[in-house]
Design a protein around this nucleic acid. Structure first.
Lengths: 280, 280
DNA sequence: CCATATTTGTAATTTTACTACATTAGTGAC
DNA sequence: GTCACTAATGTAGTAAAATTACAAATATGG
């Protein structure tokens, strides 16, 4: 919604643009104000505001207001405060999960669609995929390996430095290498990424923009994770990485068509028949 | 919001209750309808609806409408449609992550605060914690182990059947055992939970309500995960489990006070100094 | 610098929410 | 059972807010 306004801003007439600028500056104010109200603070006429609403694709001021309300409810649905020792369980639940929700929505908005498309192209063009991640990212790559494996794609996940370095040294142009790292500054993953690039593998980095790793990898999915406020483990970055990999897996599965669906069905079938056998 | 209406329902007068029932049935319709509109379909007068709005704590119909809009935007912030082969990257990102967001918000609402409190009590009363999970839950418990370990709590995660059964057989009342399972029907985890309960360990299950595992474990955090629509791997359940464990870890850390904070600081310090050393 | 198109504002209209008051229905005492 | 009283609901009018029609002003090209 707000993005749409920003995108279309230059196509607007000057009075409408003044409205747009004010809305972008004070989105929350729109919800509690009336048409006349806004007209007077922005110093334009009421119809101008209605025209602005139509320009950005809504049917009128009323429609614009409800849509903005919905948009803001989602993007700002967060308990902004940090957890504190006085919080009871109810508050902790709200705050911890609220932060995760915020993080996911952030990824949803920041993740670059065309970059995703390119990465998907790369992933379906190779015959195997390796995932590298150390520390907290180690769990993420293990999960990713499982996900892609179920699509029938041969793949491995490595989470310790020596093995990652060895794995990188035996890659070739038939490999895609997905390197997951929050900071993108660990020596191991950088070295591994360099090696893989040199050997012709398609290297994809899921990391922070501007990091050393991001500079090396030709295809990047840069996820700009909000820095942790210091407290507690990096849940947010893990969640963001998982979300990116979920998206990639679904996108790859769709591009693979029946082949991927078939593999999925088979793995599911095995899982459920095992469960039944065990239940007896 | 809708919960509030349900709670207050019996205190309403009969005409107001008719309004409440209609709103609960058709919450989305409220957004696009006018006061007069709703009055005619519910077959009450307009002031009755305004009175209903006041009864549930809003200042009038307008206020009620925006609040409901916000509420629905958050709880239904989802592209309802499933992903399909025709979707482009943009839509896949929106749908996949949107579903995850929905799942998290669902957990946030369903997770029982008093149950969380009891579980936290149990976790801080023991000297070590074991995490059991097989298959997809295996990744979740590995992550949990890492999280709690950083608080300075001795703990282990097991993700294969024989090891889980062995681990359960050496538990004692000084152990807390956290069993993670989506279905709660796998033979291994049920058996392990039974063994641990018999040996006096505090057994906590993160699983579906009504499952066999839920019946065994004295303390349960029941997470009622929306069944997957069939497509793709169980991302939702994994996310829900992670969210529950995140919450538990934060709650435990807060209850531990300085002791937990101190351990966290130390582990963080080590991580960053290692990173620096590697960067040289 | 005039003609035309575009942008913006004024004022009237319509839609919508809200309020004051009247009517009806319900409840308990005798 | 009915009268008095209270609570609940509706009617009709009012105020407020959004929208529209049209006119004035501003910009643009020949």
């Amino acid at each position: 919604m707000l993005n749409r306004i920003k995108n279309i801003r230059q196509q607007l007439t000057s009075a409408e643009r003044r409205v747009a600028d004010w809305v972008i500056e004070n989105p929350n104010s729109v919800i509690n104000r009336t048409l006349a109200d806004i007209a007077s603070v922005v110093d334009v006429s009421e119809p101008t505001i209605v025209r602005f609403c139509r320009s950005i694709g809504t049917s009128g001021f009323r429609d614009f207001k409800t849509r903005l309300t919905q948009h803001l409810a989602v993007t700002e649905h967060v308990v902004h405060a940090d957890v504190s020792a006085e919080d009871d369980a109810e508050q902790i639940i709200a705050k911890v999960i609220g932060r995760s929700v915020k993080e996911l929505i952030g990824v949803q908005q920041r993740l670059n669609a065309s970059a995703v498309e390119k990465v998907v192209e790369a992933l379906i063009s190779v015959s195997r995929i390796d995932f590298y991640g150390i520390g907290a990212s180690g769990f993420v790559v293990a999960d990713a390996q499982n996900k892609f494996f179920r699509l029938g794609i041969p793949c491995n996940a490595y989470n310790d430095s020596p093995t990652i370095l060895q794995a990188a040294s035996i890659t070739n142009p038939e490999y895609a290498v997905v390197v997951v790292s929050k900071t993108g500054s660990s020596k191991t993953v950088i070295e591994a990424a360099q090696t893989a690039v040199a050997l012709g593998a398609k290297v994809i980095a899921i990391t922070s923009p501007g990091s050393a790793l991001a500079d090396i990898a030709p295809q990047n999915l840069l996820v700009d994770i909000n820095e942790d406020t210091g407290l507690y483990t990096p849940m947010s970055s893990r969640l963001a990485q998982l979300a990116v990999l979920d998206t990639l897996q679904v996108a790859v599965a769709l591009r693979m068509g029946d082949r991927g669906q078939h593999s999925l069905d088979k793995t599911k079938q095995i899982l459920s028949s095992t469960a039944k056998r065990q239940r007896r």
